[in-house]
Nucleic acid binder design. Sequence first.
DNA 1: GGTTGTCCTTTAA
DNA 2: TTAAAGGACAACC
Length: 293
Amino acid sequence: MNALAKIDSSPIDVTPDGSDYETVRRVIEMITLDYRDQPSLEAIASELGQSPTQLQKVFTRWAGLSPKAFLQAVTLDHAKRLLGKEELPLLEASYELGLSGPGRLHDLFVTHEAMSPGEWKARGGGLTIRYGFHSSPFGQALVMATDRGLSGLAFADLGCEQAALDDMMRRWPNAEYVPDQEMTAPYVGRVFDRANWSCDQPLKVVLIGTDFQVRVWQSLLKIPFGKAVTYSDVANDIGQPTASRAVGAAVGANPISFVVPCHRALGKSGALTGYHWGLTRKRAILGWEAGNA
DNA sequence: GGTTGTCCTTTAA
DNA sequence: TTAAAGGACAACC
């Protein structure tokens, strides 16, 4: 608790555009709330008490897209395009690159290791997890790491940090948690700045979950930037074509959001079906990827 | 759009 | 080991 207080008083703003997210979030909410009568830029701007040009600037800086283009990028139509016709071969193709050894999983270049079932059963017992809050392009980011690598990444809107922390701590109740912003800070720059995505220094992540969950997450890691798959695609990929619904549950339990790109999993129709940290954020991330492709 | 069918994981006896 | 509950689904009114 006092840990939180300390965090609040000394936020580390690693990403300069982090504060833009609050504006962007509200724009997205407005757009999707009444998408039928597409509000004009002027209408949105006045609602937020900003000038249209100012809003345009913030938006473009954040997304790499104008509000209008962003709007396009978040439509059902565009989602279907992400799914594409050739998404299955794509999965197959990257398959052999996959699980053995440090490969090019994820454009972020991730090496991962999974916890053993025994470690999972211990519910994090014997594990020391260091954590810290940092601002990110998608709101406050809660970063968690063990000495073996990144183990958790969660999001929270301003003022809701405690809820996110509770949520994450509930997953591994027996672990020991130590607030340590200095230790977690470097991950933020590493993860959210594409310039730092390279294979020279693969990002180490630790997947803590059941066997099934880990298989699902590994499958997600193979989805390239700017692409998307359906839940049934993932089910196919792990060799259990009828388990799409269980896949959904596993995707939802993903502890390292963004890095494990659970936002690139869509319903078969291309509809965004759900997101643990809020649908708005899923839209934001997808739109951001469209603008930073 | 809502509603139902199905099937697999999880969790708790 | 078994049983019950329930899903970020998908298909079908």
